[in-house]
């Protein structure tokens, strides 16, 4: 946390702000962490986990359930790397608290394949080289799965706008689009 604050201060400092830094407001008394026993259905498996009420769904998946396929790019809703399906709809797991999802179904990238058989969207990303470094890829793939559920009749022209919530620092956008277009065709025509 303090690391993040330092980095952001440098960023804002770059905007040439002519004021001194005010001290970060601190609460006098340290508060005791509160926890909650939570049940989630993650990738089809029921799990019970004791979570700090402050924990994001993203941190809970990664640090408590050791599902590190879901990535943390920005932790502020700006990149899409943390996309998961929550009760079937794509959402950003960094912008929600785990405690808010008692009983919900969460699908992460780890839950898409059927054993060794890749999900058609995963297959399409591999076939079309829909990545370079791969950091954004799990978010892209889960987002594309959510998109195809929202728009079974997705046209190629709609893909850029409806995938705009997933940034790719390597700018592999051309191949990402091609992969999703292929997956959309496949799902329309039936496998």
């Amino acid at each position: 946390m303090s690391d993040g604050t330092k980095r952001r201060t440098v960023l804002a400092g770059g905007l040439s702000v002519g004021v001194g830094l005010a001290a970060a407001p601190a609460r006098a008394e340290a508060s005791t962490p509160k926890t909650d026993l939570l049940t989630l259905v993650v990738n089809g498996r029921r799990v019970r986990v004791d979570v700090d009420v402050r924990a994001s769904l993203l941190d809970t998946l990664r640090d408590r359930l050791h599902l590190t396929g879901t990535k943390k790019g920005c932790d502020q809703g700006a990149c899409g790397a943390c996309t998961v399906l929550l009760d079937g709809r794509r959402v950003l797991s960094c912008l929600t608290l785990a405690v808010m999802h008692e009983g919900s179904e969460v699908t992460t990238v780890e839950g898409l394949a059927d054993g060794d058989r890749l999900h058609p969207v995963q297959r399409a990303f591999a076939d079309h080289d829909g990545f370079q470094c791969g950091f954004c890829t799990s978010g892209q793939i889960v987002s594309a799965v959510g998109l195809l559920a929202e728009h079974p009749d997705l046209t190629d022209a709609e893909i850029p706008e409806l995938m705009s919530g997933n940034l790719c620092r390597c700018a592999a956008y051309g191949n990402i689009r091609a992969a999703i277009a292929a997956a959309a065709r496949l799902s329309r025509e039936g496998e």
């Binding site: 952001r8 804002a12 002519g18 004021v19 005010a22 407001p25």
Partner: peptide, 22 residues
């Protein structure tokens, strides 16, 4: 959104970092 900067909206009376900023 950066508590290390002065902001009247967040902390009444603290000043406004944007006034001399970006």
């Amino acid at each position: 959104r950066l508590p290390e900067f002065a902001c009247n909206r967040r902390d009444p009376g603290a000043g406004c970092a944007a006034a001399g900023g970006d």
